[in-house]
């Protein structure tokens, strides 16, 4: 359910940016979302489509780039993980630390020329 609030936030930010550019139609919004956020991309895409109805962002493509978790391991170095695991995805060491993977930001958007 929390994807609904996020979809609304994305729409608010996109509409505010579009206003600076003459309220031209928004065709695409690019996001970066960390794998630790627990966000289901399909849900977010669906809900964004729903909240954007009747606005200049109606029908815009929501492109979600997943930010992998970066796992820093004292045994084998640094590895990226797309799925959260306990221990290092490279060597299994239980002392590995998850250092990244909680991004949630709008990178850019496309509007009509």
């Amino acid at each position: 359910m929390h994807e609904l609030g996020i979809a609304n936030d994305i729409l608010d930010i996109a509409l505010a940016e579009a206003k600076k550019h003459g309220n031209r139609r928004i065709t695409r919004v690019d996001l970066e979302v960390g794998v630790l956020r627990g966000i289901v991309p399909e849900n977010l895409v669906f809900l964004f489509g729903h909240v954007a109805k009747g606005t200049i962002a109606e029908g815009a493509h929501l492109a979600i780039e997943e930010q992998p978790a970066r796992v820093e391991c004292g045994t084998c170095g640094t590895t990226e993980a797309r799925v959260f695991t306990i221990g290092c995805p490279g060597c299994g060491s239980p002392t590995a630390r998850v250092e990244r993977g909680d991004a949630m930001r709008i990178l850019s958007m496309e509007i009509d020329d």
């Binding site: 936030d9 994305i10 550019h21 031209r24 996001l31 930001r105 709008i106 958007m109 496309e110 509007i111």
Partner: peptide, 14 residues
């Protein structure tokens, strides 16, 4: 036309 944004999504919550 591409518009760069680079904003955290939950800024209003923050």
């Amino acid at each position: 036309m591409k518009v760069d944004i680079g904003r955290e999504i939950q800024q209003s919550a923050e």
